[in-house]
Design a protein around this nucleic acid. Structure first.
Length: 642
DNA sequence: TTAGGGTTAG
């Protein structure tokens, strides 16, 4: 008998040989059955396979296993097993899957099994078992609430179950609250939940606090998160990581880095999670200084792929392709994210041809591309005007890589066709695609209409956006700018008036530049900077230098009905020109001037930056919300196509 | 027996 020999083997291994033999041969009703003894030992110490192999023998002998042993087995299974092992345990424990008549009726075991299913992602099995349980305690409820809260698209179900739990008279504990907080769907629900937590006195629990911080941050409520954080007496690494991640994800890079510094002052050692968030925070900064410092910390985690991907992205987003290239070249491992990051990074920095070369390399030696890789590839095509390549990749991605085109890919195609001036093709594409066009698609078309000065189509696209999103300010601004481009001042004024009536304000152009540890912000037309006088002098100097190289003000970029002279004045003080002048005044030898912008760069500033890079022999890098412009020796990396 | 944080695009 295979089972008997296995049993001898197990007992021989886990107990003195003489005793194990005696156990097997002389089992009596006053001592535990040897099968049960062996089973318990295997459940406690493994191996899992041997413990599982004993389950049929237990059933055959009509024995009921010790709930503690079964619970341990389930834990072992979660660690080393597969979902099918979980189902096997379930069958044996509950006699053929009949939940109503379990052979091992412990609540303890049922809870463990529900948890096992949840951990293996078998939500339906977990819920079925939970529903059939005659008795449920706070652990049973918490396990399913947590499982639903963590599952995609099941947050509402988690909340419903939480309410059912309260109705059932079961009081939630800190485990329950730390799970359900992630499922709060609106700030109001979150506030109510926070209130309940305080009321039952569970707000001092560090797990509950970190979930609270995370929940506030997910709604973009940095102050709310910060308050919860500041009130804490004892903090652990995860709490620090939560708050830093929250700030980084909300786009407050400076805030995230300040917190990181405070964490170091509090003598907490960072881990990979901290550094990943800090790197993300650095992607929103102008300079590379902090990013490089973090790079030094990353060196000790040389096998951490996630961290290296974050580092790669940081270099791309800070416009330092040299560092990104070098890092990508020496990364010991590269996954689909590394490749996608590199492709998108190159594309955003105006190096589309190289991006497509990296994609070719990926096809031959890298992992299989995913839908995000393809977004990067199509972005590369659209920003370089490679219409044919874009069409090829779009139409063959399903056949070549099994990736069905999604909304994002369609949007890239509208961008590709629109930018290239093929507006009719773009409209045809929108009407023929497999999705109902959304406001994103129409906005892309509207941007292209403005670029190619097609007011009729712009009005059509803007109307579609406003039909879908009546409060969209961007659509009204773009529409009025299009009228202004066409010198249709009456229409532009009508559109502006509508915005004024609705209280919509145009976001002024802002550029910022970092000097030392200070960030200097320049707003279009605003000369309140303490160095304004010298900035104006420097601008005059630059204007005379670039005029010698052929610069003339391109007044068509002024979107107001003014005299030429006034238009030139407005152009002169665009925020990026102020920042460029400030940059050349304070430039360091051999270092590029890095500027960030809140709006897309205008054509006149673009021409100005190109010529300044030539006349001053400086590299100027301007990052706008969509892409980078690297100006060097009179040329821009975007090849004047943006 | 139940709980909290980190990467890629737009």
């Amino acid at each position: 008998m295979a089972a008997a020999s296995l049993l001898c083997h197990v007992i021989a291994r886990s107990a003195p040989a003489g005793r194990s033999r005696r156990c097997l041969l002389h089992s009596n009703p006053h001592t535990a059955h040897p099968l049960l003894v062996a089973f318990s030992r295997l459940c406690a110490h493994g191996p899992l396979r041997d413990a599982l192999a004993l389950l049929p023998d237990l059933a055959e002998a009509g024995l009921t296993a010790d709930p503690v042993a079964v619970s341990r087995l389930i834990k072992l299974c979660v660690r080393h097993g597969t979902p099918s092992d979980g189902r096997l345990i379930h069958r044996h424990v509950f006699g053929g899957g009949d939940v109503a008549a379990p052979s091992c009726s412990s609540l303890f075991v049922s809870n463990s099994l529900v948890s096992l299913y949840a951990k293996f992602g078998l939500l339906d099995d977990a819920l079925r078992l939970f529903d059939g349980m005659p008795h449920k305690n706070v652990v049973s409820w918490t396990t399913v609430v947590a499982a639903l809260a963590n599952a995609r698209g099941r947050k509402e179900d988690a909340l419903r179950l939480f309410v059912a739990m309260l109705r059932d008279g079961v009081a939630p504990n800190m485990y329950t609250f730390s799970s359900i907080l992630g499922a709060c769907s609106t700030p109001r629900v979150l506030a109510a939940m926070h209130g309940s937590i305080v009321k039952v006195g569970l707000d001092s629990d560090v797990f509950v606090r970190s979930s609270l911080i995370d929940a506030y941050m997910k709604f973009g409520d940095l102050d709310g998160g910060r308050r919860v954080f500041d009130e804490m007496v004892t903090r652990d690494l995860i709490v620090w990581n939560s708050i830093i991640a929250g700030f980084a994800q909300s786009g407050d890079g400076v805030g995230a880095i300040e917190l990181f510094m405070r964490m170091k002052e509090a003598r907490f050692l960072s881990n990979q999670g901290t550094l990943t968030s800090v790197l993300r925070a650095c992607t929103g900064l102008v300079t590379l200084e902090v990013g490089r410092q973090v790079h030094a910390h990353v060196l000790k985690y040389d096998k951490d792929l996630i961290l290296h991907n974050a580092l790669l992205d940081m270099y791309c987003k800070c416009g330092s392709l040299q560092d990104a290239d070098a890092l990508f070249g020496r990364m010991p491992q590269r996954d689909v994210i590394s490749w996608s990051t590199m492709i998108s990074g190159l594309a955003q920095n105006g190096r589309s041809i190289e991006a497509l070369k990296v994609f070719d390399m990926m096809k031959s030696e890298g992992p299989r591309p995913n839908h995000i890789t393809m977004v990067g590839v199509l972005f590369a095509c659209s920003h370089a005007g490679l219409v044919e390549d874009g069409w090829y990749y779009f139409s063959s991605m399903e056949k070549l890589f099994g990736i069905q085109p999604e909304r994002e890919h369609c949007n890239c195609m509208v961008d590709l066709l629109g930018r290239a001036g093929k507006l009719d093709d773009a409209v045809k594409f929108i009407h023929e695609m497999n999705f109902q066009p959304d406001s994103v698609i129409w906005r892309t078309l509207l941007g292209a209409c403005r670029m190619h000065k097609n007011a009729d189509l712009a009005a059509y696209a803007a109307k579609e956006i406003l039909r879908l999103e009546p409060d969209d300010q961007g659509a009204r601004i773009l529409l009025s700018n299009t009228y202004a481009d066409l010198r249709q001042w009456a229409d532009a004024e009508k559109s502006w008036k509508m915005m004024r009536d609705r209280g919509v304000k145009k976001d002024p152009g802002r550029s910022w530049i970092e000097l030392g540890k200070q960030v200097h912000v320049f707003i279009a037309g605003d000369l309140s900077h303490p160095c304004s006088e010298s900035i104006i002098q420097e601008l005059s100097r630059l204007f005379s230098r670039v005029t010698n190289l052929g610069y003339t003000p391109q007044t068509e970029f002024v979107l107001q009905d003014l005299a030429t002279e006034q238009k030139e004045d407005l152009l002169k003080y665009h925020s990026e020109k102020l920042a460029i002048a400030f940059g050349t005044m304070n430039a360091m030898e051999g270092k590029p001037i890095r500027i960030m912008k809140n709006l897309r760069i205008c054509g006149d500033c673009h021409a100005f930056a190109k010529l300044v890079s030539k006349s001053e022999g400086k590299v100027i890098i301007i990052r706008d919300p969509v892409r980078f412009h690297h100006f060097q020796d009179g040329v821009c990396s975007c090849n004047d196509y943006w």
